[in-house]
């Protein structure tokens, strides 16, 4: 079935996707993080000793998507036009995307749903970029979409982190490079969204960029920067244009929900054997 048909009929798309995926993947769509076994690495009933040595995938909530409408409050972001600032565009775009994702069965967590977002325990303190990353990381979502807007260029610009990838997620991950284990998945998510936008005939540009706080996210993370559809910057607020982009992204998320692969957790290296143990071994094997 062509992708465009799936986008026109979201319910049919959901049925098609659910019917085509194995049941083991469906069981991972729970509110609590459930590790998805990687093929051939984890036995169905692993012994207790194996459970401590075999790397386990990082938990992932496949039904949760985090949306971060960038800026807010005193931080208005870039100026789109004389009467329009970035923070208002990102919030409006996030609301559209949230409604479409919710209708497709996702639980959507937004880092802000009003002009300004404040810390829960200090209502007068605005959320920092690190706080936003913390909100996202606590959800263990299947995708984190950082929404930005610009008057430069046209269409949609997609960016992922440009830090060097690592093979897995270590137990103690530096905050400023927490995305390293997820860079590969972020790239796959970016390509998924790019394909969907391309099929929707939205002008597209993609690349790598160091955008705060994407490097601190422990989830597949993509920066989605919305630009005007034409030469006039005012077209960025066009409802039909935003709806077309939102539907393409939401459709891509339905497919991505079952393709995402969480990286394995890198176990800490065990300390070297004690000298007494090695001495005892030497005595037993003279």
């Amino acid at each position: 079935m062509p992708f465009t048909d799936l986008q026109r009929r979201p319910a049919a798309a959901m049925l098609f996707v659910i019917a085509s995926i194995p049941s083991s993947v469906l069981f991972a769509q729970t509110a609590t993080p459930t590790p998805t076994p990687t093929s051939g690495t984890v036995a169905s009933t692993p012994p207790a000793t194996a459970a401590t040595t075999v790397p386990q995938p990082v938990p992932m909530n496949r039904g949760v998507v985090v949306l971060d409408p960038a800026h807010g409050g005193v931080d208005s972001g870039s100026r789109i036009s004389d009467t329009l600032v970035e923070k208002d565009v990102t919030l409006a775009f996030a609301f559209k995307l949230r409604s479409l994702l919710t209708s497709r069965g996702f639980t959507v967590v937004m880092t802000r749903d009003s002009d300004a977002a404040f810390e829960a325990n200090s209502p007068s303190t605005p959320l920092s970029l690190d706080d936003r990353a913390g909100i996202a990381n606590h959800q263990r979502p299947v995708a984190c979409l950082l929404l930005h807007a610009t008057s430069a260029g046209s269409g949609v610009h997609l960016y992922t982190s440009d830090i060097a990838p690592t093979a897995g997620e270590p137990a103690l991950q530096p905050w400023l490079t927490a995305q390293a284990a997820w860079v590969g998945e972020s790239g796959k998510l970016e390509r998924q969204i790019a394909t969907a936008l391309d099929r929707s005939r939205v002008v597209l540009a993609s690349g790598n960029a160091a955008v705060r706080p994407v490097d601190s996210l422990t989830c597949p993370a993509v920066v989605v920067e919305l630009a005007p559809s034409g030469d006039d910057p005012a077209t960025i607020t066009d409802t039909s244009y935003q709806q077309k982009v939102s539907e393409a992204i939401a459709g891509a998320m339905v497919f991505w929900q079952h393709q995402a692969q969480a990286p394995v957790r890198i176990l800490p290296v065990p300390p070297p054997a004690a000298p007494a143990a090695s001495a005892a071994a030497t005595e037993s094997n003279p």
């Binding site: 960038a70 800026h71 931080d75 972001g77 870039s78 970035e86 920092s128 970029l129 930005h148 830090i163 400023l176 490079t177 960029a209 160091a210 955008v211 705060r212 490097d215």
Partner: peptide, 14 residues
Amino acid sequence: RETLAGHADLLRLY
């Protein structure tokens, strides 16, 4: 400083 003008990361080591 966190960002150059709200986007590009100025905290990281390039």
